[in-house]
Computed example of a mutant assay.
Amino acid sequence: MRVSPLLLAVLTAAALTACAAEPVTTAPPPVVAGKKINLSPEQNRIRTQKVADIAAKVPKEIAADGKLTVGFSASGSPPLVSPATDDTTLIGVETDLAQLVSDVLGLEFTPQSSSWENLFLAAKSGKYEAVFSNVTVTEERKDTYDFATYRIDQLAWQVPDNSPIKAIKGPADIAGLRVSVGSGTNQEKILLDWDRQNRAAGRKPAEILYYEKYGDVLLALKSGRVQAYFGPNPNIAYNIAVSGGSRIAGTFSGAGPDLQGLIAAMTKKGNGLVEPLHEALNTIIRNGTYQQVLERWGLANEAIPESRVNPPGLPRQPAS
Rank of each mutant, 00 (worst) to 15 (best):
Y145K: 00
I240E: 03
F72H: 12
S75E: 14
V135G: 04
L105Q: 08
Q227T: 02
A74R: 15
D173L: 09
E42C: 09
G202L: 12
E188N: 08
A56C: 06
P5V: 10
L6P: 07
P234T: 01
A265G: 11
V293I: 11
Y128L: 02
A130T: 01
L221Y: 00
I54K: 00
K124A: 14
V51D: 02
M266F: 02
S246T: 12
Y229C: 03
A98M: 01
R203D: 12
P318A: 05
P28H: 04
V81M: 06
K36A: 15
R203C: 10
T48C: 12
T25D: 10
I174S: 01
A237N: 04
N282D: 07
L281I: 15
Q112E: 09
D143Q: 14
E108I: 13
P29E: 09
A63Y: 00
R286A: 15
R178L: 05
A206Q: 07
V58I: 06
Q99I: 03
V181N: 02
I263A: 01
W157G: 07
P59R: 14
L80F: 00
W116S: 15
Q158K: 12
V58F: 01
K127Q: 11
V24L: 11
V181L: 07
V181A: 05
S115L: 14
I174G: 03
M1T: 08
E42H: 14
A167K: 15
V70R: 08
A300V: 03
K189E: 10
A206K: 06
K204R: 10
V179I: 15
P23D: 07
V293E: 03
T88D: 10
N301E: 13
A241L: 03
T267Q: 04
L90I: 06
A33V: 09
R225G: 07
T251Y: 04
P41N: 11
A249R: 11
A172S: 12
Y290P: 01
L97N: 06
N44E: 08
F147R: 03
N287H: 11
V70F: 03
L209S: 14
A255M: 02
L11V: 13
Q291C: 02
Q154F: 05
P23V: 07
A201C: 12
S246L: 07
A84P: 13
H278L: 10
N310M: 13
A52Q: 03
L6F: 13
K213S: 14
T69Q: 06
A228M: 04
G224D: 08
I285V: 09
A64M: 01
F132E: 00
A319K: 13
A280M: 04
K169L: 13
Y128P: 00
L277Q: 03
I248P: 04
G170K: 09
N38F: 08
K268Q: 12
V181P: 00
D86S: 09
G92A: 07
D143Y: 10
D86I: 08
L294T: 08
E212Q: 12
T149K: 06
